[in-house]
Design a protein around this nucleic acid. Sequence first.
DNA 1: CTGTTAGCGCATTCAC
DNA 2: GTGAATGCGCTAACAG
Lengths: 356, 356
Amino acid sequence: MASITFDGTSWEERKIKKPTIHDVAEKAKVTPSTVSRVMNGSSLVKPITRQRVLDAVKSLGYIPSKTARMFKSGKSGILGLVVSAQHISELIFNAGFQAIFKALTEKAHSEGYNILILTSSDPDSESFFNVIKNQVADGFIILSPSNNESLASMLEEAGIPYVFNMKYSNNPEDIYYITSDDLEAGYMAAKYLLDLNHTDIRFIVGSIKGNVISFNHERINGVKKAYGEYGIPFKDDYIVRVPGQMEESYNRIHQLLQTQKPTALMISNEVTTVAALNYFYDYGYRVPQDISVIGFGPSDLYRSLRPNLTSVSFDITHASGKIVDMLLQRIEGIPIKLEPPKKPELIIRDSTARNI
Amino acid sequence: MASITFDGTSWEERKIKKPTIHDVAEKAKVTPSTVSRVMNGSSLVKPITRQRVLDAVKSLGYIPSKTARMFKSGKSGILGLVVSAQHISELIFNAGFQAIFKALTEKAHSEGYNILILTSSDPDSESFFNVIKNQVADGFIILSPSNNESLASMLEEAGIPYVFNMKYSNNPEDIYYITSDDLEAGYMAAKYLLDLNHTDIRFIVGSIKGNVISFNHERINGVKKAYGEYGIPFKDDYIVRVPGQMEESYNRIHQLLQTQKPTALMISNEVTTVAALNYFYDYGYRVPQDISVIGFGPSDLYRSLRPNLTSVSFDITHASGKIVDMLLQRIEGIPIKLEPPKKPELIIRDSTARNI
DNA sequence: CTGTTAGCGCATTCAC
DNA sequence: GTGAATGCGCTAACAG
C-alpha cells in the first residue's frame, strides 16, 4: 500500500511517531543534553544555541515525554484518590463526598499535583491494596467508609505513602490520617436540641450492611455525653441505622415515623437528610413546627435546602488541605506533626425550633 | 549517625529503596528476563522456577514499577479529564457535571483505565493545551463550556488523542466529539408547554460573561421551532441569561418575577433550577399551580427535588460511554464512526400544569 | 558553555 | 526453558 511521503517518512509515521529529544538535538545540531538543558531552563546555555534549540523544538512540535521524565525522576506528580465504587456511584447525591473531592482536587492542583481517581469495587483491604499497588502515584489518599485497619500495614510494608480520611487503627504508630472531631459534633447537636427541650429525638446514622459507619460511633458518644450532662436517660433505640441511599432512606424514615413520634431528628448523612426533607414535604410535616431537623455536612448544601437547615458542619476545605499537606510531607520524607482536628461548627438556621 | 542495620543495609535504605526486578532475579537465582516472564504470566517458565521467583517476589515485597512499565510500553492506562477550574469549584451544586463525571469514571474503570483530573484555570485554548501537553495520559476528554475551536487543531497537530463533549468546530474534519440533540431538547420542552397552553414562557439559559453557553443556542433554536409550528410569535426577551451560580441565579429569578409574570419557566441549568425552586418556596409561589417549571438535566436529581420536576433529560451514561469508546478507538487507531446522538427524553412529573 | 557517558526498571528480542 | 543483550527518552555527572 503506497502512501504519500514527506521528508522521506510516510505521513502515518510522522503522525504517529512523536519527536524525541534526539530528533530535536539532531535538527539543532547539538546533543540531547543541551536540548535537555534548554527544556529545563538551565542558564548555562549560550543564547544563540538556546534559540537554535527552541526553533527546532517549535518546528518539530517537540513535547518532552512525561513518562520518561517520571521514569527518570521517580516522581509522577500524581496523587491517587482511592474510593469505594459505591462512593462514585452515589456521587450525584453525596454532597459530603463532592465537597471533599472538590477541596482535595483544588488543593492538589495548587500544590502542582493532579488527582487520579481510583476505585475499588470491594470495600475490603485486599481490594484496596490491589488497586493501589499497581498504580502510578507518588502517594495515595484513601477514603474508605469501613474500617480497613490491615490496609495501613500493607501499605506501610510496601513503603507506599498514604493518608486516610479517618483513624482506622488503634496502633499509636499509625498517625497517617486526618480526623474530624465527631464526638464534639454529636455533642453540639444533641446539646442544642436538649436546650430546645427536645428529649425524644432520633439519631439517624448511616450503616453499611448493618454496621454503623465508624465515625458515627464517636458522634453517638457525643450525643450520649450531652444526655449524661443533662441527666436524661439515653435510650438505645434513639439510634436508627439507615443505609445511605436515597430510596432506602426515604422508606426507612417513613417506616420510622409511622410508628414513633420523635420531636427532633439528627441526621448523620446528607442523602438521608434530603430524603427526610422530601418525606416531610410529601406527607405534610412542617419543619420545624412539627419536627426539628439537624443535619451533618457541608454548610453550602444545607443552605440551599428548604427549609434552610440547621447543621453541624466541618471545615472540609481545611481538613482536605491537611490531608494533602500530610501526604506531601510523607512523600518528601518530612516528619509528620499531628494536629488536633478543627472543631465543627453549629450553624443555626430554620429547621429547628423549641419543643413546647 | 548510627543506625540499626539489617542484611547489611540500613533500615532507612530498606524502607526507601523498593526492590527491582533485579533484586528478585538475584534472590531467585535467575535473570531479570525470567522474573519478567513470571510477572507477565508467560507460560514458558518451568513451574519450579516460577515458584522460586514467586517466593522471592513475596519475600522481597516486590511490586513492578508502574512508571517503568509505562515508559517501556508507551501506554499509561490513564485518561485525562480536562475541565475548567470553575467546573470543579461548583461541583457541589452542579449535578450535570457530577453525572458526567460519574458515568465517565465508571466507564473508564470498566475498560481498565483510570481518570486523571486536570483543570485549567483559564478557559481559553492556550491554557487548556498547556495543561494537557505536560500530562501523562493516553488521551484526553475535554469538558469545556466555551468554544475552544483552536484547541482541536493544537491537539491534532501534537498528535494527542482527544474527544470533546460538544462540537466546537465547523470544520467537517473535526469529528472527535460527542454531542447531544439539544435542538430536540428545546423543541420537546417548548412543545409540551405550548400544548399545555403556555405561551408567555421564559427560557433561562446559562451564560458566561454574558455569552450564552454554546449548546443553549441549539436549545433556543428548538424552542423557536416549536413556536413556529404553532404559529405563535417568539419574543426575544423570552430568553433570559443567568450566570450559573446559586446566589446569582436566585437574585436574577427574583428580579425577573418582580417585573414579569410568565406562566412557565424552562431552565437550562441544574443550579438555576434549584435556585428557582427555592425562590418559589421562599416567596410562596406554588409549582405548578402558579407557575410551571421544566428543567434540563439528570433525571435522578430532578426526581429528588420537590415538587418532582418535569424535565428533559439526556442519557448521560450512554453519552459518556460513547465519549470513552471514541477516545479509546482513537488511542488504538481504530477509525471512528460517527453516530447520531440519542434523543433526549421528556419526563413528565409534578412541576407542570395546564395554563388556564 | 557543550559533549560524552551512563543508567533509571522493564520487556523483548535473539541466542543457547 | 532460560540467559544475555538491547533500548525506550530523558537527565545528571563528569569531562573538556
